[in-house]
Design a protein around this nucleic acid. Structure first.
Lengths: 198, 198
DNA sequence: ACTCTTTAACGAACGTCATTCGTTAATGCG
DNA sequence: CGCATTAACGAATGACGTTCGTTAAAGAGT
């Protein structure tokens, strides 16, 4: 009944955006540079996406899901609870939140500059939390729900903290120290539990 | 030797900026609205501040120092280590990071949109960390330096996490749960220590 | 009191962006 | 073979931070 959208253009826009966001961050990347790199005009970008914000999430969503899925595989392959927790914390904070490719910089900048109309699907956040919760359950099968929830929330909080810091307070605090500190506290929680049972 | 700056104008700019940042956040506040509210012209604002970013920090710095000083008084007035730690965590996260007045929104937005030339004095961050470290030392006088540093870093990480979330992911995660979770982990660390000593 | 110099103050630009508009022409449908 | 739809595009539009050009206030030197 009418002319069809060309899906190749949509993916070209997303790939160009991902590349440019990685290189220059969300704010410094202009719609016209994305359009140029994707081989189309800036106004045509708005045929495929309703805003710059929407492009950022279209790029970030599959990226995060892939990283979390990778992480889950790695965590589940560990043999001891300690190794599982260590690889979970390390992978989540060093590997994803503090990633070098600039994806979380994009996320943080996009959220910080979001305009009233810009909203994103909270499903991604919920899914991420549920995966973390599941990994904790795998590492500590006998933990009680309260502890599992506490750990999940603490990890999500740390994720946000690292994401903010990595991108906005570059290098002022050693992230390694924060990760070690968090791990020490998780260990304390685990040890208290095993002491209480013995 | 030349005409002098009028300090009343400087403070009027800062007060107008603080008010507007609180109402609308950093990004939605324009220099011209600040100038209008301060009773001067937008170009004259640049006689007193070199950028919008600098205004944000001129406002945020004394605000944060005052909040931390208040917190320190409250924490030091507690009687037991448990009460001290609880009031520290609660005051830092609920009271300051998640503040309702929009000051941390200003901070996060200013940092997220900072341009290459925009830099801020890391002294404020260092000072804040040293105050937290000192409060932890007051609550747990017999703790060892490693634990004290771990707690300090964890609290700063949580501060950043809450700041990001409060402002950018409004209401999607209950912050109360995160604060409780963090407190549970701190308790575990403290209890492990006292168990180890007995 | 009278210059001279510095610079606060201001209105008018400037440059950069995200987004929208007006128009054209592909493309599927009856 | 028209007709309606809409992808595509170049040219606006509207905001906003920042800079420019000019004016005049006000301290220093004589």
């Amino acid at each position: 009944m009418a002319r069809q959208k060309n899906e190749q253009i949509r993916t070209a826009i997303m790939e160009a955006a991902q590349q440019l966001f990685m290189e220059k961050g969300y704010i410094a990347t202009t719609i016209s540079s994305i359009a140029r790199a994707a081989g189309t005009s800036q106004s045509n970008v708005y045929v495929y996406f309703s805003s710059k914000f929407e492009i950022a999430f279209a790029v970030f969503d599959p990226w995060l899901r892939a990283r979390v899925a990778e992480l889950e595989k790695r965590v589940m392959a560990q043999e001891t609870p300690e190794e599982s927790l260590r690889s979970l914390i390390d992978g989540l904070l060093h590997g994803i939140a503090a990633d070098r490719s600039g994806q979380t910089l994009t996320l943080v900048q996009a959220l910080a500059t979001a305009k009233p109309g810009d909203e994103y699907n909270p499903e991604l956040l919920i899914w991420t939390m549920s995966r973390i919760h599941h990994m904790i359950g795998g590492a500590l099968p006998s933990s009680d729900p309260t502890e599992r929830n506490a750990l999940t929330h603490s990890l999500m909080l740390a994720f946000d903290g690292i994401a903010l810091r990595q991108n906005l307070r570059r290098g002022e605090i050693e992230d390694g120290l924060s990760v070690d500190a968090l791990y020490m506290m998780v260990q304390a929680l685990v040890e208290r539990r095993s002491q209480a049972r013995s």
